[in-house]
């Protein structure tokens, strides 16, 4: 808490004879927005959004033309079709369900694969431990074998040495 006290005291020292200021708030507190929709469109277009303008008349709810007396009465068939969209096989709802289903299946498959990989890894781990582990009895036996082998080899060398000695020094007499 030392830093806190020191900063606060520095502020007190710095503010000696600093007058308090009245805050002038004569800026506009509301903004006039006569055309809210137009304003919104202008703003989103400013962020490079594509805005498609259509009037309420542009959205038909019936195939019938109300201005043409020959066509049948307005029966809301387009509106019905729009509503039926939610029950169709390629409706957003169905698409979403299918996507979730696919996601679930993929997740399951990936999960299973991960389990298999785990098992393989365990196996490899065991093999590695077996390979790197040290068995004292086994090492002792190996050492004895090598010891004997070394002794045998050295016996062979001694034999060859004596043989050569015999051949060179004790057979025949030339140049004396």
């Amino acid at each position: 808490m030392k830093a806190r006290e020191e900063i606060l005291s520095r502020i007190r020292l710095a503010q000696v004879a600093a007058p308090d200021h009245a805050v002038r708030r004569d800026y506009s507190h509301t903004r006039e927005l006569p055309d809210v929709l137009g304003h919104f469109v202008e703003r989103v277009e400013d962020y490079k959004a594509t805005v498609i303008r259509t009037s309420p008349d542009g959205v038909a709810f019936s195939k019938g033309n109300p201005t043409d007396p020959t066509t049948p009465a307005l029966d809301h068939n387009v509106a019905d079709q729009l509503a039926d969209l939610s029950n169709s096989t390629d409706s957003p709802d169905a698409t979403y369900q299918a996507m979730i289903g696919r996601l679930g299946v993929s997740a399951q498959a990936v999960g299973r694969r991960s389990e298999i990989q785990d098992a393989v890894r365990d196996q490899v781990d065991t093999s590695r431990t077996a390979e790197s582990g040290v068995n004292l009895d086994e090492e002792m036996t190996n050492m004895l074998t090598y010891q004997r082998g070394y002794e045998a080899a050295s016996r062979v060398l001694t034999t060859i040495d004596s043989m050569l000695d015999q051949l060179i020094n004790r057979t025949g007499l030339v140049g004396r």
């Binding site: 502020i11 009245a22 800026y27």
Partner: peptide, 17 residues
């Protein structure tokens, strides 16, 4: 008016920091 208000708010804060 906005920048005057902003300056005033900051000055007031600094005198009572």
């Amino acid at each position: 008016q906005l920048r005057q208000g902003a300056a005033d708010i900051k000055d007031h804060t600094m005198s009572n920091l």
